[in-house]
Every structure is written in C-alpha cells, then in structure tokens.
C-alpha cells in the first residue's frame, strides 16, 4: 500500500491533480458549496465545474500540442495567431466572403481552417528543422504575421456569422455534456494513445534531451520536429474554431491573444521540463485546467479581472520555485531536517 502510494506521488501528474483538487476545494468552501452544484436544464449540465471544462477546452488542446513542442526543447509562440487565422478562414467561408463557390459549407470551412493550421505548423517546423532558426524566433514570425494574414482574410473587419451548425462546436451538447469536451477527449485521447502505443514518447524525450546523440542512434530528428510543429499548428487551428464558434464570429485582433503564454504556463504547471526531455501530456492538460480554474476562481470571488494577471504571476513564481531542486533541498532542510532531504529531492 505504502509502495503504491509513493509510486502515485512519484508520478508527474500527482501534484497537478492535487493542485487542481485544492483549487476546487477552496472554491467550494468560499462559495459554501455553490461551486460544486450542477444543475440540469433541458437535459444539459450546467455549473462552474462544467464551465471550467468547457472554457478550458481550447487551452487543454493547445497545452497538449505545446507539450510536445516544449519536450523537444523548442517552443511555439504562434498558436494564438494560428487560432485567429483558423477562425478567420472558417467564418469567411461560412459567410461566403471567401471561396463563395463552397456556398458556406460548414464542413468544408472546418476542414480548410484545419488545413491552414497544418500549413502554419509545417512552416514553423520547416524553419526550425531545416533552416535551423531558433524556435522562439521562428514561431515569432507567425506570431506577428499571423494576425496580419487573418486580417487580410477578413478584410480587417470583425465578422459575425449565423450558423447553428458552427455554433455547435462551442455551445453544443451531447449526452448532456458540452461538445468542446468531446473534442478534447478525442484529440488528447488520440495523442495519448499514439504516445502509449508507439515509440513516439521515447524518441521525443530523446530528441529533447540530446538531439545529436539521438541522430547518432538513428532517430530522424528533423522529420520529428517537422511533425511536432505541424501537430501543434493543427491543434491550434481546432482551438481557433472553438473560440470563434464561441463568439459566433471572427475577431482577428483578439482571438487567442496571449494564449500561447497560458499554454506554456499550463505545460510548466504540469511539470514538463521547458528545456526539453521528460514530458507528460496528461499533466499538461491538468495544468490547463488549473490555469482555467484560477481564472474562474478570481471571477467567482468577484475580484476584478485585472488581478488575474497578478495572480498568474505569483503562480509562475511558485511553480518555478517548486521545480528548482535546490529550493526543494533547502525547503526540505527546514521542514524535515537532514533525513527527509532526499525525499524532498525526489518530489
């Protein structure tokens, strides 16, 4: 039993899950239980918890893609702009401004928006793996240019559309649960399955840790990098669809603004080393839930939204400290004296 417990606490997802539960508990106490209540209206579940899952959908998807990019020792700061592009393309097609020949076909709009995301990802991957530009610089190009591209697509206007089919992506319900949740389950599940069933995880960690030695061991590092940035781009475009379905239109200036930072924060909270190497997609998804629930908490407590940023800053500091083994050692010294020190490091 004790062994099982220590194995559990040794897993990367342990602390993120604990933190998430703690935040929920905190909220439950603060709201005297109201936080946990789930009401059923028209067979749909409503409640704060459901909100966290629904509104956190985008971030969970982005965090899953970002985890892999960060695991290779890279980063992708263009995801917010890719979201804007994808929303712009989908909405422009649906309202007939773009490719009127499609007659506003929602399915085609979605497919083309995702294809655009794939293209953006390929571009990032190409810059990083072939031209060898530092990832932060390479993806900065799309971060900056992406919104411009989105505005070109929408002629610089905010588009509103009228399509129930498209709204369903964010607002729909299946079996009482919001539709974004199913998208998350599908994408993250697919990814987890892929990591589980293939050697992808091993290769990814290996590349993140030592790309040269990985190449010498027979791993096609460049091909993997290309694939990973492409997946990140594709995931970002899906997140963009959810966001634009939520606002029932495309707003190129604000869609996914600064969300890349939240995504990176989510991965960091999940305990993946941002310098590359060991990673856990599941933990990052929990990390995304934590980031989302903090936002919800602050709003629930009636704190002005402006404080969310301050709170996040504090959170980042705490996480950085928690990840620094040196800090853990000294903390361990203070609390448990000499004997507990190694256990503290093992955290």
């Amino acid at each position: 039993m004790k062994k099982r417990l220590s194995k559990l606490s040794g897993s990367q997802a342990f602390w993120p899950v604990m933190i998430f539960l703690a935040i929920i508990l905190f909220n439950t106490i603060m709201t005297r239980g109201e936080f946990l209540t789930i009401s059923i209206v028209d067979g749909h579940f409503y409640g704060r918890i459901i909100d966290i899952f629904r509104n956190g959908g985008k971030l969970m998807i982005l965090a899953a893609g970002m985890t892999m990019v960060l695991a290779t020792g890279g980063t992708d700061i263009s995801v917010g702009s890719v979201m804007a592009i994808s929303g712009a393309i989908a909405c422009s097609i649906i309202n007939g401004n773009l490719l009127p020949g499609l007659g506003g076909n929602v399915a085609m709009a979605i497919i083309l928006a995702i294809l655009a995301g794939v293209t953006c990802g390929l571009w990032n991957g190409f810059l990083v793996s072939q031209i060898k530009i530092q990832p932060i610089v390479a993806t900065m190009i799309l971060l900056v240019a992406g919104r411009g591209i989105a505005q070109l697509i929408t002629n610089g206007k905010i588009i509103t559309i009228n399509s129930d089919a498209y709204y369903f992506i964010n607002g729909g319900y299946i079996l009482g649960l919001p539709f974004p949740l199913y998208i998350v389950l599908f994408l993250v599940g697919l990814l987890l399955l892929f990591v589980q069933k293939t050697a992808f995880g091993l290769f990814l960690e290996s590349i993140g840790c030592n790309p040269l030695a990985s190449k010498f061991a027979g791993i096609k590092v460049n091909k993997f990098l290309l694939a990973i940035y492409t997946i990140s781009g594709a995931f970002a475009s899906v997140a963009g669809l959810i966001e634009s379905a939520g606002i029932k239109g495309a707003d190129c200036n604000n869609a996914g603004l600064n969300i890349e930072l939240d995504a990176i924060l989510a991965v960091a909270i999940g305990g993946t080393n941002l310098m590359g190497g060991r990673f856990s997609i599941f933990s990052s998804v929990i990390g995304a839930l934590i980031v989302q629930s903090i936002t919800t908490t602050v709003l629930a407590l009636g704190v002005p939204a402006a404080y969310i940023r301050v709170l996040k800053a504090v959170l980042i500091i705490v996480i950085c400290l928690a990840q620094s083994s040196k800090f853990k050692v000294s903390l361990g010294k203070i609390f448990v004296g000499k004997r507990g020190r190694k256990e503290a490091v093992a955290l």
């Binding site: 050697a199 030695a213 010498f216 061991a217 027979g218 791993i219």
Partner: peptide, 24 residues
C-alpha cells in the same frame, strides 16, 4: 555529446537504437 541521452534511464538508452531500427 554523441552518445548518452542523459535524462533517460539506462533501459531507454539501451533500447534506443534498436527501437529506431524497428521503427516508430
């Protein structure tokens, strides 16, 4: 620089090239 993958276990380090040979 060309051999070890420092943060991986001995097991993963040994299996790496064989895995690459077998494919993803």
């Amino acid at each position: 620089t060309e051999g070890i993958i420092g943060d991986l276990s001995i097991r993963d380090n040994i299996a790496l090239a064989l895995q690459a040979k077998k494919g993803l």
